[in-house]
């Protein structure tokens, strides 16, 4: 009996609509984030993450309304990432009903932002999102760097050192995405996940590359992650959250069922 490992479905939201296609049979509007969040909650999601990928500043308000609607009927932790740049962005999301915010590139541009955010709102609501890519060659010791702009722009920052620094600055959790694996369905970068998870004392969420249920279990068992995040395997209804949890349980992982 102890703490359960978490499964976190992630919704990519653009202008208030879920993108990357969703195929649920019992959902009237497959693009409606509120309806999808409700469904994930029913299936036993431990948290839900919204990634706002809206490109234009003018349409940023729509994610606030999505969070407000979901928070008034779904009573599990909600995280919102994407476009969090100043303290006011965080305040707006928390007031809308988010429990945590994900900070990504704003932390890379100005690391002190994480410190200020944690001091102002508490570490419990600050998730630092790290997009990492392997830069070492085969045969060399593993080395990963932080990339921004959706994995296109290298920063030269060592990913493991960055995670430790973000923890020291007050991050309450790390959301780690392997840019090499994201979208490949070939599984998490387990070496990366494990390197970060063992380097920091705060929880690590593994992300990027999930294609089947064994990948989720591997992220916990071999990657030492505290939680696993996935988007497409749940969106396309290949698997339900409940199936994922039962599979993880069968592999000896403690889950909330």
């Amino acid at each position: 009996m102890s703490l359960a490992k978490r499964i976190i479905p992630c919704l990519d939201v653009d202008n208030g609509r879920v993108v990357k296609g969703v195929k649920f049979v019992d959902i009237r509007d497959a693009g409606d984030p509120v309806e999808i969040a409700r469904r994930y909650d029913r299936e036993g999601a431990d948290e839900i993450t919204f990634l706002d990928i809206t490109a234009t500043h003018d349409n940023r308000d729509t994610i606030v309304h999505v969070v407000e609607q979901v928070a008034s009927e779904v009573f599990i932790p909600l995280t919102v990432g994407g476009g969090i740049r100043v303290l006011e962005d965080i305040r707006r999301m928390l007031n809308a009903g988010a429990d945590k915010v994900g900070i990504n590139s704003a932390a890379v541009f100005r690391p002190e932002f994480v410190k200020e955010a944690a001091e102002k709102f508490g570490s419990q609501c600050i998730v630092v999102a790290i997009d990492a890519k392997k830069v070492s060659q085969d045969g060399e010791d593993n080395r990963w760097e932080i990339f921004t702009h959706g994995g296109r722009k290298p920063t030269g920052i060592n990913a493991v050192e960055w995670a430790v620094r973000m923890k020291d600055y007050g991050a309450g959790e790390i959301l780690l995405t392997s840019m090499d694996r994201d979208g490949t369905k070939s599984g998490f970068d387990l070496a990366l996940t494990r390197a970060i998870s063992e380097a920091v004392s705060i929880p690590v969420i593994a992300s990027g590359g999930v294609g089947n249920l064994d990948h989720l279990a591997d992220g916990i068992i071999e990657g030492k992650a505290d939680a696993v995040l996935a988007a497409s395997i749940f969106h396309f209804a290949e698997y339900t959250i409940e199936q994922a949890k039962k599979h993880m349980q069968a592999r000896g992982i403690e889950v909330r069922l």
């Binding site: 359960a4 490992k5 978490r6 431990d46 419990q124 309450g172 063992e198 004392s201 705060i202 505290d226």
Partner: peptide, 21 residues
């Protein structure tokens, strides 16, 4: 306490975050 271990010998993270019985 820092560096507490679970039954499998993994270091327990702080904060204690998630769903517990």
């Amino acid at each position: 306490a820092d560096h507490m271990l679970d039954a499998e010998g993994n270091v327990l993270k702080i904060p204690h975050m998630g769903w517990n019985q």
